[in-house]
Simulated assay, not measured.
Amino acid sequence: MPYVANARMYSVNPAAAAAWKELFGWLARESRVELRVIDHAFPLPLADLWSRDDLACAFMCGFPYALAARKPQPVAAPVPVGAPIAGRPVYATRLLVKADSRFCSLEDTFGGRLGYTVEDSHSGYNALRHHLLPYYRKRGERLYRESIGPMFTPRRVIDALLADDIDIGPLDSYALDLMLRHEPDLGQKIRAVATTDIAPIPLLVASADCPDEVVSPLQAALAKFADCSDTADLRDRLCLERFVPVEADDYSLTARWDDEARKAGYSQPG
């Protein structure tokens, strides 16, 4: 039977989406697992993708993974070329403003309009809130006059910034790397005023009941990705160094950050 593959979380533009489809084609050939690439594009809920019984390889944010009562099976974690710690499957959130704005620091944006993606996103909500929590504690009040969201996707955060609908917004550092790789002009329109602490990057998962004869060949093939001559172009277009085994316990960090913010009465960033 065919199994489903999807890279919606990092299909940030048409060029990246095409490269992910090529990667899944390579993965199917290398692993001999029949993979059917589906789009599952916004506004379809990501939770519906992650709960599919036929899921074999799709990106899942570490925050909902940590909170899931019945976790999907980890397949592999990507290591971006631009990872905040070289060679590690980690990422951070860049807090972005328009390049021509008056803001020079994070504190300059306080009192303005903050965008966020969705409540079950680590990079676009949980990490953002964790970074703002010390400022909230110090001030004893909310930092922004408006928290605008959910915006759901990194692209919609960028669009809102460029349209002056928000003053500052969060972006997954790997998603931003992919955007800038294929849209170099974007780098002239935005800039980062802060970066959050690092966290384990979104992982590739399979359904909880996906058989081992599917998951194991996928893992073995992805372990070869960094060393195959025929994936060199894909590594360049996807800003990827390699895939590594998942350290599942690392993702509990995201749940701890959530718990800390809620105990401080700071449930929504802003």
Rank of each mutant, 00 (worst) to 15 (best):
G265C: 06
H122C: 11
Y174H: 08
P2L: 02
A175E: 00
Q188V: 10
G25R: 12
R102L: 13
C104L: 13
S173R: 02
R242W: 07
Y91S: 15
L96D: 01
G124L: 03
S207Q: 01
V246K: 05
P14D: 09
A28S: 15
E213I: 13
K71Q: 10
G25M: 07
Y65A: 01
D259K: 12
L133I: 03
V244T: 10
S123R: 05
Y266W: 06
A58P: 07
S147R: 14
T196A: 00
S105G: 02
L143R: 13
R52M: 14
R145C: 10
R70N: 13
R181A: 14
I148E: 02
R113A: 13
I198H: 12
C228G: 13
V118A: 15
E241P: 00
L114N: 13
I190D: 00
L203I: 09
R29F: 04
N13A: 01
S267C: 13
L49W: 07
D53K: 14
Y136T: 03
A86W: 04
D165A: 15
Y174C: 05
A83F: 05
G270A: 07
C210P: 10
D227R: 15
V157K: 05
R36I: 07
R256W: 08
G270S: 08
L186S: 06
P74C: 13
L186E: 08
A199D: 11
D197K: 04
E260K: 14
G187F: 06
D39Y: 07
A232F: 08
S216N: 13
E260Y: 01
G169Y: 03
W26C: 03
R94I: 01
A127Q: 03
Y3E: 00
L162Y: 05
L222Y: 06
D258R: 15
R145G: 08
H40L: 09
R155E: 09
F63Q: 12
P200H: 08
L96M: 02
R70L: 07
T231R: 13
A192C: 03
R88D: 11
G270Q: 07
A18V: 01
Y10I: 05
E107A: 15
A83L: 02
E260V: 13
P89S: 14
R32V: 02
A255T: 05
V205W: 00
E107H: 09
A194P: 00
N126R: 00
M60T: 09
R129L: 04
A77E: 05
G25P: 09
E22D: 10
A58T: 03
L171D: 08
P43M: 11
P154R: 03
A221H: 14
A77S: 12
P80Q: 14
I148Q: 09
G82Y: 13
R156S: 09
S147M: 10
D108K: 14
R52E: 05
P72K: 11
S123L: 04
L55F: 02
D209G: 00
V157P: 01
P89D: 10
S252P: 06
V90W: 11
L218D: 04
D159F: 01
I166Y: 05
A47P: 05
G187L: 11
E260G: 05
R8S: 03
Y136Q: 12
R113L: 11
P74M: 07
S252Y: 06
Q219P: 10
G87D: 05
L178N: 01
G115W: 10
D212S: 15
R52K: 07
C61E: 15
A76N: 06
R102W: 10
N6I: 02
G111V: 10
P211K: 01
V193W: 09
K21N: 13
